[in-house]
Structures are given as structure tokens and as C-alpha cells.
Amino acid sequence: MVEQRVGQKTIRLVRGDITEMEVDAFVFDITEDVKLGSGFGGAIQQRGGVAIQKQLDTIGSCPTGEAVVTEAGLLKASWIIHANGPKFREEDEEAKLASAVRAALARAEEKGVKRLAFPPIGTGLYQVPLDLCTRVMVDTISEHLSDGASLEEVLIVAPDDREYKPFAARIQEGA
């Protein structure tokens, strides 16, 4: 098992489909117009029901680097934290990614979440470089957990070896 202990807290790397995770909340990388769209967004709509998009429509928008929360409908999680990470090599992607991760962690704390799952934000369609993503995500989560967080465990859910291997290396560096 690949994990890093941060005091009494844990960062753990797992494989799987994030929308089916048994966690209190998981993070979805959303666009500014808060439309769930395809990919994991399609899975959220099909498995979670139409209520999630309706809540997002009420929220209206989410600027890059920010995060908003909805309930998770019929999914196993209680909450979905919709974080808007950088997309398609936009400027200041490192700062925007760190900001989106911090915003997601802050929303999780506000909801009293103990187990939170993150995808590798933006490394697929949105072209965020894997090395930048692993470094920023693991370091930002680690900093947050070491800073008196009430979160107990943060999972990083890698869909493929392509993401799993670099995340495993980064997490083990800090273990």
C-alpha cells in the first residue's frame, strides 16, 4: 500500500473509479460554467441523478482556483467538491492548481469531511503535466494535513498506471 503519514493523518494512493469511492466526499475537476459534462461528470450524472447538476446550476459558476460543494445524490459519498483546476496549459497553472487543491481542502473542512478523495487534477484531457501535478498535489495536501486539519485521510485515486507510478514515487519520497 502506498501511503504517507502526516502526524496522525494519512495520504493514501489507490486505483479505481473516483465516483464509486466510499468516502465522505470526492473532488471533481469542474469547468467555470459548472457543467458536469462528460467523463467523470457523465458518470456523476448517470449514477448520482439529476439533482447534482441542479445544485450546480443554482451556484452558477466557479472561477479557476476555487471550489464549490454539492450533495452527491445517489452516490456512495455524501458530498462532491467541485474544484476548478487549470486547463489546457493556461497561464500560472502551478499557482492555480495549488489554489484549487487548497480550496477543495477548505470546502471539505467546512463540511466536516474525514475521508476525502482527489483525482489527479487535470492530467488527462486538460493537459496538466504529470510531474507538476504530483508535486503540487502531494505537497499541498501534506501541508494542509500537517497544519491542524480535521481531515483524517486523503485518498488520491489514480485511474491508470500513468498517474499511479509518479504519484507513488512522490508519496513515498515523503513517507
Binding site: 459534462g37 462528460s38 467523463g39 467523470f40 461528470g41 457523465g42 458518470a43 448517470q46 488527462g124 484531457l125 485511474p159
Partner: peptide, 14 residues
């Protein structure tokens, strides 16, 4: 839309 389906769900039709 199709690329995102294939990246995240493993097939191009979601």
C-alpha cells in the same frame, strides 16, 4: 466531450 469520456471512463462513448 468524447476525449474526456475516453480519458476518464476508459471508452469514448461514456
Amino acid at each position: 466531450v468524447v476525449s474526456k469520456d475516453q480519458w476518464e471512463l476508459g471508452n469514448q462513448m461514456g
